[in-house]
Design a protein around this nucleic acid. Structure first.
Lengths: 225, 225
DNA sequence: ACAAAAGTGTTGCGCCTACACCCATGC
DNA sequence: GCATGGGTGTAGGCGCAACACTTTTGT
């Protein structure tokens, strides 16, 4: 009766994909189909057990790579969930959340066992994973407004309009282009390049890149290793 | 060689105590002396193993009660530390941080095995506990400036000057009394009472109490149970 | 009367919002 | 030319920091 507590890691993986119809960016997350009871055939967050010789963050990165085949642009611990009754046996889950670029994931696993869902139009998840996903989205929406986190969704070079579209997709409301430009370009959080985005039927837009000297967020005394 | 990972809970407990000489408030935390190797006789954060039938938060509250004899005014999960080499055997620690009222703790354990230290004048701690404590202080200082968290240090009724002193002690810098008053009393985060603080050799100050309808901080979709 | 802290008034600066306006490109 | 988004200018408002000033107590 005194079995040891088992330690799991789960990861909320988030990407922005253009809607095939409207072209607007939507937040999507990959979920995995459960292969056993409980919650057989339900969708759940990707994850796995923590191995004795693997750090928590490494475990999260591993489950992420197994599910999506890509490496995260940003990875942060979200919370440790440990209520006694959250699963039939006692499992404590350390949950991470990650951002991955949209391009890299557009062609990756989307089959019977792994599927990308819109976060605002998803099935009911196994265990307490709905609550976990909601919390991750809350953190993301908060963090977008006071950090450079949204750059984690974008490719290496991007226009300010693309960055603004990412913010708008996360926040769910339009932002003033003029003011957004000043708030971003007025700081050193992005660096202008010499290249311009051409091809649209309008004036070309300057391409920017993320400032490599800065992290996407300030985690205080917790350096990423 | 494939032993299970052990799960521990530690708690950073924080209180504001008046300095016996100057009377100014200082942040203090109780530490426990280690009774065994490794780090025998070093000071460490209070904590213990997680029991199979106890939630993480309950474990934290238990270790807190054992150490200080008081119940926390505020308790929040800080972070899960799980690097492979942070202890001789594999231990993952879920760390909480807690605020306790100064009055209640002024007469509590301060003996050979448990001692209250000023956070800015403390011995070097066992394991990675220095880093953990620094992170807790960083979170506290952040949260003080955008939440009602500082009220967790105060008794049931308090003057705005006492609340300001708590903020100043945490932030380490003086605040303008006039502006502080407006920022606090202009909102509903404290409620005025009819009582006044008398006895000082100056004009009496109104006593306030915390608004019971509000939590000390907004934890988003994570309600405290 | 005086010191000390409670509490109010006021002014100036900076940031943010809203929105008008010009620029450069594709068609 | 016209439509479209890129990019600049600017005026109003709000909040905050700084600090002068009045009020009420103890000694």
């Amino acid at each position: 009766m005194n079995e040891p507590i088992r330690l799991a890691v789960s990861t909320v993986i988030l990407a922005l994909h253009p809607d095939p119809e409207t072209g607007a960016l939507v937040l999507r997350t990959p979920l995995v189909r459960r292969q056993r009871e409980p919650f057989l055939d339900s969708w759940a967050l990707p994850g796995g057990w923590v191995h004795p010789d693997e750090s928590l963050e490494a475990s999260a990165a591993t489950s992420l790579l197994d599910t999506t085949g890509v490496r995260p642009r940003y990875l942060e611990q979200l919370y440790a969930f440990g209520d006694v009754d959250r699963a039939p046996s006692r499992v404590v889950s350390i949950v991470y959340w990650a951002l991955v670029g949209g391009r890299e994931t557009i062609a990756v696993p989307d089959d019977f066992n792994v599927r990308w869902f819109r976060v605002d139009d998803r099935p009911r998840l196994a265990f307490d994973h709905d609550r976990i996903l909601e919390y991750a989205l809350w953190r993301l929406r908060n963090k977008v407004s006071y950090s450079r986190i949204a750059q984690g969704f974008l490719p290496e070079r991007f226009t300010l309009a693309e960055l603004r579209a990412a913010h708008e997709a996360v926040l769910g409301r339009p932002l003033d282009p003029a003011n957004f430009r000043r708030q971003i370009a007025g700081t050193d959080q992005v660096l202008p390049t010499d290249a311009m985005s051409t091809g649209g039927r309008h004036r070309p837009a300057r391409l920017y890149r993320t400032n490599p000297a800065l992290g996407f967020a300030d985690n205080g005394p917790l350096s990423p290793r």
